[in-house]
Design a protein around this nucleic acid. Structure first.
Lengths: 350, 350
DNA sequence: TTGTAAGCGTTATCAC
DNA sequence: GTGATAACGCTTACAA
């Protein structure tokens, strides 16, 4: 049976008020009192009960990070950075995995679920614009959207410029002389913003270069998984003339696609160049190393945490759209020489 | 301002007791009452406050999963399975990242930190035996250890047979005709159990095959990261005669080692065969695909959750050691033909 | 500076 | 079967 504030007060012969003051680091407590209380605390091995504290203050010190799948490397790396950034401002992060379940996402967004456990939420969702628009911004808990939704001024929002990122990737393929450039990652069944924007960037880059946009070179992917990338690439390779480059909407898709190219007896980048988006560590060590568009996850995490912390303190804050930087990283999968022999070192150079 | 139980009671013209009964699905409530209360609940959009409930019942419904790094693929995949298994029995999982910080681990183990927020803890730690032995089993919260510590009867424990897994991996390298078998992953500075046991398995397998155990072929790794694997392998390759096979204590180390072999101008598996432990998805799509010892993470997760749930209900339960199965998966990195063209399919076949 | 007491929203113990 | 009411452990006016 853990000791309570009252037990400590009794033992130290002071009031609970004083103990509470000592525990929460209140200034105006006499040195003697403080010492006496401290001793009692140690003797009883007292630790404040966060639940009771929360019930009283209304704050849990908990943030939720909502992702579709925690075992997707990009989300793992994002989670790492979010946890770090949150700890710095005194928040703990709880990871919620929606597993591509739209209802679950809606529950979370609406707070139908376990609403008051969190002070705020970082949402990296699959939600469509339509789903998001159903959520009442004013009555939902403090929320920051991660990822590439159209900013409509109702929610804070940290994301890269998705259209440009996709265009940069595509343009890189064009720059190295490829002409039949395929794309993997559209999602015709769902109206997610990310694939729509990346497709827009892809098409724009082609157009700008005067290349024809061939719908036969575009493949959908339900999840951005290695298996989806593998399947889509396999399908692309079976047609003729086959593509000479593939732009994958995520690094994970690209890893699957690369393997499919090899299994088809072809070479990357000689026969088919490949580029992804995300810059997960896996791609840096892969063979060939994966060209990609690097997203600044630590920056995204920091901004998101700063934003949510501010909004928790003042819910009336005007919403803000923060655009995170991205940078093209040409590597071996698009023909770059690996001049830094150690990928770890190459990373630092980025 | 969210509606409370009292608001609902007032609106429905019943007592809070009745509302509470309805909300928590108590049997003996008349149909009329139930309907009336339900209506009031909907009209007010009432949702029970989990914090208040927790303060009263002493249960949060929250489990902590403590891992060193969430962006390490093995832990990501483990977290995924743990979250799934926990949801099935009504628990939510909070992921705590210790970041190789021993003090932080100790804080968590001792409950110095935010003790009562969790009903129980799944601990996949780096903690050494010594650190663990300092923890008072009886006064710590319900705890299940994941990973390969020596079972001393004080804590529940889910792990594979580490010595045998390492021996299986090493023996596989011997079976394909390798004689100078290196190892990456010892940790001489820390007395972690995992590397100690894996080293034991490695040495035992060599001995059994009548092979000499050459200390010059063993390399340490601080973290089980790609970078560590790369560095260790690079160092191994620079000596002569060089090894013809490397047993890495984790798949991630193996991914780094493989890249180092290529960067040294050598081939896997022809010049150097490589095998890891874990069976992360990355290894199935790598080129060459990574031979490994597959750990049954879903099984580990299920068992751990079942165990912690049982212990929460009855803290006096005798502790138990659960040994999870492992299985050798020869793939291309040790010369196996990739007969299943689609790695995803190959996975299912496992 | 410190003590007293109200109350956060539930659940559980009594009665009836 | 349902209604009052006392906790759960803490913070914080309000007093002293």
């Amino acid at each position: 049976m853990p000791a309570t504030l009252r037990d400590v007060a009794e033992r130290a012969q002071v009031s609970v008020r004083t103990v509470s003051n000592v525990v929460s680091g209140y200034e105006h407590v006499s040195a003697k009192m403080r010492a006496r209380v401290q001793q009692a605390i140690e003797e009883l091995d007292y630790r404040p009960n966060p639940v009771a504290r929360t019930l009283r203050t209304g704050r849990t010190g908990l943030l939720a990070l909502v992702v579709p799948e925690i075992d997707v490397p990009y989300f793992g790396e994002l989670a790492r950075d979010v946890i770090t950034a949150a700890a710095e401002v005194g928040y703990q992060v709880m990871i919620d995995q929606t597993g591509h379940d739209h209802d679950r996402e809606q529950d979370l967004l609406r707070g139908t679920d376990r609403n008051m456990l969190f002070d705020g939420m970082l949402f990296a969702p699959l939600a469509t614009e339509a789903e998001l628009s159903e959520v009442n911004a004013s009555q939902s808990m403090p929320l920051v959207l991660l990822g590439e939704h159209t900013f409509d001024g109702r929610f804070d929002h940290v994301a890269i410029d998705n259209v440009r990122a996709a265009a940069d990737a595509t343009t890189h393929l064009i720059d190295i002389g490829r002409a039949r450039i395929a794309a993997i990652g559209t999602q015709p069944k769902e109206h997610y913003t990310t694939p729509l924007q990346r497709t827009e960037g892809y098409e724009r880059a082609l157009e700008r270069a005067g290349l024809e946009h061939d719908p036969a070179l575009v493949r959908a992917a339900d999840h951005y998984s290695r298996a989806d990338g593998y399947a889509a690439a396999t399908s692309l390779l079976s047609q003729s003339p086959r593509p000479d480059a593939i732009f994958c909407y995520s690094d994970l898709l690209a890893m699957g696609a690369a393997r499919a190219v090899f299994d088809a007896g072809l070479q990357v980048p000689d026969d088919i160049a490949i580029i992804g988006i995300d810059d997960i560590e896996e791609g840096r060590y892969a063979r060939p190393s994966l060209s990609t568009v690097s997203l600044d996850t630590p920056f995204i995490a920091e901004q998101a945490i700063a934003r949510i912390a501010a909004r928790i303190d003042d819910p009336g804050l005007p919403t803000q759209e923060i655009v995170a930087p991205h940078i093209l990283l040409p590597r071996e999968s698009t023909g770059a020489r690996s001049d830094a022999r150690d990928p770890a070192i190459a990373t630092i150079a980025n």
